[in-house]
Design a protein around this nucleic acid. Structure first.
Length: 438
RNA sequence: CGGGGCGUAGCGCAGCCUGGUAGCGCAUCUGCUUUGGGAGCAGAGGGUCGCAAGUUCGAAUCUUGCCGCCCCGACCA
């Protein structure tokens, strides 16, 4: 992509509305534009990142055995009356009436609808286990949206729903999502820590929030240091037998503010290993048994022919929120530092003197070579001054900057800069291209 | 939803107290010079001062109402 033909409205000055760093940088980098409180338009650069994140989430869901579908944003209120949540959900639910005065709502979540889909087709235990997910926009009319996309009213969310014949089987479904989440966040360059979450009226031990640590996190979290560095198990695991891996990650103390027990923390975790930090919730998994299947009569016949409500769980990932979370965890004074896996472009090609025949031709060659090698290149072919180009490149956080200028070319060299470390190396253009396409 | 604050050019702000020709910086456009870390000079364009009533000869400025947005708190993917 040539920058001169792209749409990248970067801001030199910080919009006064933004207070936290991710919000500020997303606005400055031309990723989003606020349209209303907690509602954002995704500009090309932001949209690109959103799609990258979405795709990673999708791939890891599929790997864990979930099947993708897509449910609508608007739902019938009657469905929610069946579960009793239409009246319980409160002001956060955006209620709408159509021209026939039918009560609708903009979905804040999809348990009712997925249960409705399930019960319409599934009658037998033989169809289980089943895990269906979609990635769709949700709306929650938050009292106080803030922090940009970290807490918007409209947000993109991946939600998966598992269906099992009994709790033992549901636990396996839960474990698959548990591991899938670790892998998902690791692929985005994040260290996510699973923490016990409140199971509410359902009870049990099957609810975890996945928290990434960042100074500007919304809540205080406490955990054993080793948990942070434990890393993700990766794709090559026995997906039918994950209890050991899960136990390993739930064995150490980890709790958010609400669940924190200082006495237990001090008893279980040695002084030197205690970590108290701020965290951002990027995922939440939950087993809720028959909560919806029972009132909504989503039943399957077991091997004995007896019909029983299915056991369900739901598993959410805040896709749009993740962008904010990643930036909170990865930036410096100059701008965003994208992990390679989610970067909107792989390489920013900077022509220091557009119009100079040697620079133009070297850049054009590099652009074509990189593009041919499958790299997403943002070619800064504008006639801005070098300083402005460097500033823009640092701001939008492209992992690699390939800098080509007249002085370097005269010496047979170009400069390659790694955004994350700031390390710059001079080398021949060929060597730089080899490095980038290796 | 409680408390606080803001709405003036695309962005950041001054002007409001004490009513009288709407300003500054950045950005934009034109020209010239410049080109390795957000260039310089000269010129130009761009605003029903959030909306609506009211007070007044006269309202960005005073009064009232409404709308929008932000921050702190309580609450959430």
């Amino acid at each position: 992509m040539r920058l001169s033909r792209y749409f990248l409205p970067v801001l030199k000055e910080t919009p006064s509305d933004a207070t936290i760093v991710s919000h500020r940088l997303m606005l400055r980098a031309g990723m989003i534009k606020q349209e209303a409180a907690g509602i954002y338009a995704w500009l090309p650069l932001g949209f690109q990142v959103l799609k990258k994140i979405e795709q990673i989430v999708r791939e890891e869901q599929v790997r864990a055995g979930a099947v993708e579908l897509l449910m609508p944003t608007l739902q019938l209120a009657d469905l929610w009356r069946e579960s009793g949540r239409y009246d319980d959900y409160g002001q956060e639910m955006l209620r709408i009436a159509d021209r026939k005065k039918t009560d609708l709502l903009y979905g804040p979540t999809n348990e009712e609808m997925i249960t409705d889909i399930f019960r319409a087709y599934v009658r037998s235990y033989k169809a289980l286990p089943l895990n269906l997910f979609h990635i769709q926009w949700k709306f929650r009319d938050e009292v106080r949206p803030r922090f940009g996309v970290m807490r918007g009213r409209e947000f993109l969310m991946k939600d998966a729903y598992s269906f099992d014949i009994d709790e033992a089987s549901a636990r396996k479904a839960y474990n698959r999502m548990f591991i899938a989440y670790l892998n998902t966040f690791a692929r985005m360059g994040l260290k996510a820590v699973p923490m016990r979450a409140d199971t509410g009226p359902i009870g049990g031990d099957l609810s975890h929030e996945f928290i990434i640590l960042a100074e500007t996190g919304e809540s205080q979290v406490f955990c054993h240091k080793d948990l942070v560095e434990m890393g993700a198990p990766g794709a090559n695991v026995d997906w039918d037998n994950l209890q050991g891996l899960v136990d390993q990650r739930t064995g150490l103390y980890a709790a958010t503010e609400e669940m924190h027990d200082q006495a237990r923390f001090e008893a279980e975790v040695p002084d030197a290993s205690r970590l108290s930090a701020r965290g951002i919730e990027v995922g939440h998994i939950f087993y809720f048994g028959e909560k919806y299947s029972k009132p909504m009569k989503a039943v399957v016949a077991g091997p004995d022919g007896v019909e029983k409500p299915v056991h369900m769980g739901s598993y959410g990932v805040g896709v749009s929120r993740l962008i904010g979370a990643i930036i909170e965890a990865s930036h410096d004074d100059n701008g965003i530092i994208w992990p390679d896996s989610v970067a909107p472009f792989d390489v920013q090609l900077i022509n220091l003197k557009t119009g100079d025949a040697a620079c133009d031709s070297a850049c054009q060659g590099a652009y074509e070579a990189l593009t041919k090698a499958g790299k997403a290149v943002l070619y800064d072919d504008t006639d801005d001054r070098p300083g402005a180009k460097f500033a823009t490149a640092d701001l939008i956080g492209t992992p690699w900057q390939l800098v080509i200028g007249p002085k370097g070319l005269a010496a047979g060299e170009v400069e390659l800069k790694r955004r994350a470390t700031g390390e710059k190396t001079s080398q021949s253009l060929d060597a730089a291209l080899n490095r980038l396409t290796a």
